[in-house]
């Protein structure tokens, strides 16, 4: 009897899990397979604008039907052969790395300071970091346009102090992209860093100090290694989406700020070349598979550690 009840319970669980499971299979996993399929197809003027991979060829004279499967590798060959794509991938990685390092340099002291603050103050201080994340990403990027453009806030300030006499424009350059992306992704870095730093046992540092360790050395040998999981989680949380970033380089970057997200967008919307856009997406995904898996590993361990 109990066994039967257990079975019904387990069956009920199965049904419950099945709903989000099927949703994610259909709307998250299957789409990647379709993208992969279309990346092997050929662009053509049609609705939708690509040739079908699988086709039934009916030969009326012979009275036979043939199944034809066409696989077209030329989209990938184009990615490897054209400097534009390779440069875009390399530049995306460079911009994402710079963004990650800037977030780390700015976010680590913030997370550390909040973790060392009085317990009652930590919540509100952390809230102040997360709050901008709740306001629109697009609008936060927009705010920087007014600051960085010629005759904008920075320019006016520099001219007023006499540091420059000519109009000085940071907007539409790689610098503007670094600033904008650091600005937007900073909370993603501070959050996991704070989570690990807050759990750090302060008696460890006291023990190091008692044994004659200087504060800096104690930081380097105790705090930094122990906060490594937070550093890794935060860095990946910033790095992975940054590589495929589109909005920030489009609004703050110059026409020569080449990033792979922009290339994909243009292939899709401007050139209407869906197969090449799909190939770009698959190549980007392959590049990100390893970082994403490392992130999932770290994320899983973090959640388990919450027990």
């Amino acid at each position: 009897m109990i066994d039967l009840l257990r079975r019904i319970g387990l069956w009920g669980r199965g049904v419950v899990v099945a709903i989000p499971y099927l949703w994610l299979l259909l709307f998250f996993l299957v789409p990647f397979l379709i993208v992969f399929g279309i990346s092997l197809s050929e662009a053509m003027l049609a609705q939708p604008p690509y040739a079908p991979l699988v086709d039934w060829l009916v030969d009326e004279d012979a009275g036979t039907t043939k199944l034809q499967i066409l696989l077209n590798l030329s989209n990938y060959l184009r990615l490897g052969g054209d400097d534009l794509y390779i440069l875009a991938y390399l530049n995306s990685v460079k911009i994402a790395l710079v963004t990650t390092v800037c977030c780390l340099l700015l976010g680590y002291p913030m997370a550390y300071a909040i973790a060392r603050a009085e317990p009652a103050k930590r919540g509100p201080l952390m809230m102040l970091v997360i709050l901008p994340f709740w306001t629109s990403f697009l609008i936060r990027i927009y705010a920087w346009i007014g600051i960085l453009k010629a005759n904008g806030v920075v320019d006016n300030l520099l001219q007023w102090t006499g540091l420059t006499t000519e109009p000085f424009e940071l907007l539409y350059s790689d610098w503007a992209v670094y600033i904008g992306m650091t600005y937007c992704y900073l909370p993603f870095m501070v959050l996991p860093l704070y989570a690990t730093l807050e759990k750090l046992d302060p008696t460890l540092l006291e023990a190091a100090a008692d044994l004659g360790c200087r504060p800096w050395k104690a930081f380097l040998t105790v705090t930094l290694p122990l906060s490594l999981p937070g550093i890794i989680a935060g860095s990946l949380l910033v790095f992975i989406p940054s590589v495929g970033e589109f909005v920030t380089p489009e609004l703050l970057g110059g026409p020569d700020t080449l990033m792979i997200g922009r290339v994909l967008w243009n292939e899709f919307f401007a050139n209407r070349d869906w197969p090449v856009a799909s190939a770009v997406a698959i190549a980007l995904l392959l590049f990100l598979v390893v970082p994403i898996m490392v992130f999932q590993h770290v994320q899983g361990r973090q959640t388990e550690a919450g027990r």
């Binding site: 499971y21 994610l24 998250f28 299957v30 279309i38 495929g244 994909l264 869906w274 990100l288």
Partner: peptide, 29 residues
């Protein structure tokens, strides 16, 4: 439970997936 690893993966991957990939793949679906 069976398929937990895949399930966990599909839950955390969208957190970091670049938006252009999500958008393109859903449209093609």
């Amino acid at each position: 439970f069976r398929g937990r690893t895949l399930f966990g993966g599909m839950i955390t991957a969208p957190l970091v997936m670049p938006e252009v990939i999500t958008g393109l793949s859903l449209l093609l679906l």
